[in-house]
Every structure is written in C-alpha cells, then in structure tokens.
Design a protein around this nucleic acid. Sequence first.
DNA 1: ACCCTACCTTAGACAGAGTCCAATTCAACA
DNA 2: TGTTGAATTGGACTCTGTCTAAGGTAGGGT
Lengths: 138, 138
Amino acid sequence: MSDLLARLRERGWRLTAQRRVVAQVLDGDHVHYTADEIHARAAALLPEISRATVYNTLGELVTLGEVLEVSTDGRAKRYDPNTHDAHQHLVCDSCGTIRDVHPSGDLMSGLSASERFGFTVSGVEVTYRGLCPTCARH
Amino acid sequence: MSDLLARLRERGWRLTAQRRVVAQVLDGDHVHYTADEIHARAAALLPEISRATVYNTLGELVTLGEVLEVSTDGRAKRYDPNTHDAHQHLVCDSCGTIRDVHPSGDLMSGLSASERFGFTVSGVEVTYRGLCPTCARH
DNA sequence: ACCCTACCTTAGACAGAGTCCAATTCAACA
DNA sequence: TGTTGAATTGGACTCTGTCTAAGGTAGGGT
C-alpha cells in the first residue's frame, strides 16, 4: 500500500498524517470496514483524527478509484480496498460481514439487448446472501 | 392486490385503514418507492397515517414475503411489490430509477462450494448499473 | 531554512433514514 | 354491543453521513 501512497502523491495529493493512517487501516486486513470502524482503527494510531476527515478521505479514495464503496444493506456503507481484481460479494444477512468471491461465467451475458430498456449498461454487481458460519450457529 | 389483502387476512392480519392504503399504494404503479414516498402517497388517501405505521407495515410485508426490500445505493431503501416473478434490477446511476429485468441462466451456479467460506447461501441479487436513456442524453 | 498560501483538519451543528416507546384507539370475535 | 389484545400515534432517539467556519500544516518558492 506504499504503492497507494506513491500513486496518490503523483496525483498531487498532500500527504498528511491523517491520510496516511486511513490508508494504513485499509491496507491492514482485507476486510470491508464501515467508515466508523475505519475511524476507530485510525484513532488507535492517531487519536486526534476526526470523523469528518475519515469521511473526506474515503470519499476521495473512492473518487480516485482506489477504493470501492459497497452498500449491501440499508445500513452503513463499507469500503473495499480490493480494486485490483474483479470480484463479487458474499454477505451475511445477520451480521453484515462481507467476503470477496470470484464466481465463474460471464455475468453480463444474461442480460439480452431487449432487456436493457435503452440503458447504457456499464457494469454488474452480484451479491450472494446468506448466513456466515458464526451467525448460522445462532 | 385485493388478493394480497385476502392472503393477509388468512394469515390473521388485522385489516386496518392504514394497512389498506399502504397496500393500495404498492399496488398502484409498479414502481419502486422509498418508504417516505409511500408515506406521502398513503397520506394523500388517509391524511392522518403516521410514518411509524408505514415503516411497521412495510416491515411486516417484507417479513411475510409479500414485498422485497431493495437497497441499491446507500440512501433510502426501496420497496418492490413484484414478488411473484423472480427478477433482478437495472439501476440508473444518475437518477436512481429501477427497472425489473429477467436475465437468463442460473445465477447461483457461478459460485462454487470452495467459494462459499462455510456460509449458508440462500439467495443472489444481481444489479446491472448504467444510465437510463434520459440521463444518457444529459 | 523558513515563509507563504492553498489545501487539509477539526468540532460540532445539522440532515436524512429509520427505530422505539408509552399512551391511545380500534378490528374482530363472542 | 362489549371486551381485549393488536395496531396506531407522535415525538424522542439513534445511526450514518454532510456541512461549515475557524484554525493548522505540507510542500513549493525563495
């Protein structure tokens, strides 16, 4: 993820301590945290970081295409630092945990031209839903 | 949708004026409204209906499987009264409009057992994204 | 090395979506 | 028609996220 910092500097990003810790948190585990979880983890490294800064930084990373925003339920969005390989998501309906999965087959091919209603279709997202092992045990 | 009311009565639902107008709104156009839009339309028919009742009623309809909850962005959930035929959604990234589509092929088959991480997978949602004809013209 | 200054961060107020609660009302059955 | 438990209500509350004005600072220029 020092790659990430290098790429951002190239694009004229000012490298502040706050942005560094947010990047560091995203780089850590390959988990999909909510903004508040990212804030909590960033605050463990840099106690005075504010919620607003975390939101700002995440928004910028999304705009730059370095991070993906995922909203699988109506609750908090989650942030996915894995933009290098195309993947889909497997979501626990109980606790909201997300795992990356790589289904086989061409996902786009199922949608015939007559089903597109004149839309310019640019992408497709697949969300598999169920219960994670922990939640399935009650 | 008088079918719906009949089904609900069979299941021991108390038929109140409030529930009737919510059902009536869902039955109207086959559009995917937000809870607040449903509340506004219900209030046009029954002015004193409260927001809480609309949320309660929608939640019950979802639990009973009569309506589907759809959250395509991080904003308000939308409610889809079309549960009698399996379908997926085509969403305009600009205006949020949703169309029902019927892709061909078995959507579930792409996910191999080794990709399930011990989850009990119960369903799959596909969201095609793009621009509707109106938004594509700017 | 140290100024500038434009850009970044901050706290807290605000807004949108949804939930919860105690008090009140009312549908359905006897 | 009376009874009763379920449904409704409005307002307070929570959670997520955005905005703003004031102060701080990274990094290029000198």
